[in-house]
Design a protein around this nucleic acid. Structure first.
Lengths: 144, 144
DNA sequence: TTAATAAAGGACTTATTTATCCGTTATTTG
DNA sequence: CAAATAACGGATAAATAAGTCCTTTATTAA
């Protein structure tokens, strides 16, 4: 569904948000460890997230990554997916046909559209804030 | 959503089914052309489909690929996806966590489950026969 | 102001997916 | 039977995704 990079990205943002709510800034090492992802690869992903305004960062000692109040409330799953995987999740034909359209639909066009509309709706409705909440209440986990 | 190979596979099976209904056996070259896919790669994919009993094949002159009556009615999208992409579409965690479960769910577990259940249901309900029908009636297309 | 810290960024490697090439095997028709 | 045809199957190449390494830049605190 999502690329590996995108999965890591979502994990990271949820974790950073969770910690940001406690007023804690988190470093790369900690993020990689707590989200069970390769550190060097995570570094690249975090760079992209910062460039896209999804997370904020500070260099130097006591530096690290953080989600400010506005980011915590505004950032949705769709923003992360879009930043990392682009729009292919939302736009492409289910069978990979370039010419597929409402006028000249592929055989699975409508059925596929239903699924993707559901996915799109979910990604738009879900904020990081909501997801981080689960970590706080202990109803969801990023790693055991 | 699906791998390129899987997209090609679905296109091919729909096309073969469409032609099989007209009692026509189709060769690799024709399949590749009519589904706009690379011939050599399609050859590999067709081999896999034959091994999985999704399509039938005959060697030699007048040979080619065909869906017999039973295959036309029985084969569903899920069978093709499963044969080519395996079960990762249906089983994996949305965030790629190995330990994710109902007891220890990842933060997007339930939301993701909804989407995937919808996808799974669609793939199980949709037979190739249904999809090929659209080609016959001119309401859907594999290429312009 | 210097040492330590941590993110940024470029170059590179590894793994996987996608795609091609070519010889072999089976089948049909003359 | 011989020649042509078409799928089968193994090896290989190209492209993309995943992941690593190392140097530079910014910041903080002693």
């Amino acid at each position: 569904m999502f690329s590996k990079a995108c999965e890591y990205a979502i994990r990271a943002v949820i974790y950073i948000c969770h910690q940001s709510k406690n007023g804690e800034r988190v470093g790369l090492k900690e993020i990689a460890k707590r989200t069970d992802s390769p550190e060097a690869f995570m570094a690249k992903i975090l760079q992209k997230l910062v460039k896209n305004g999804i997370v904020s960062s500070l260099k130097g000692p006591t530096g690290g990554f953080v989600l400010d109040k506005e980011q915590q409330e505004k950032i949705r799953l769709v923003d992360i997916v879009y930043a990392i995987d682009g729009d292919n999740v939302f736009n492409g034909c289910g069978l990979g046909l370039r010419e597929c359209s409402e006028e000249q639909p592929c055989p699975i066009h409508d059925k596929f559209k239903n699924i993707r509309n559901g996915l799109s709706k979910m990604l738009h409705q879900t904020t990081i804030h909501d997801l981080a909440e689960g970590l706080s209440t202990g109803t969801s986990y990023l790693r055991i």
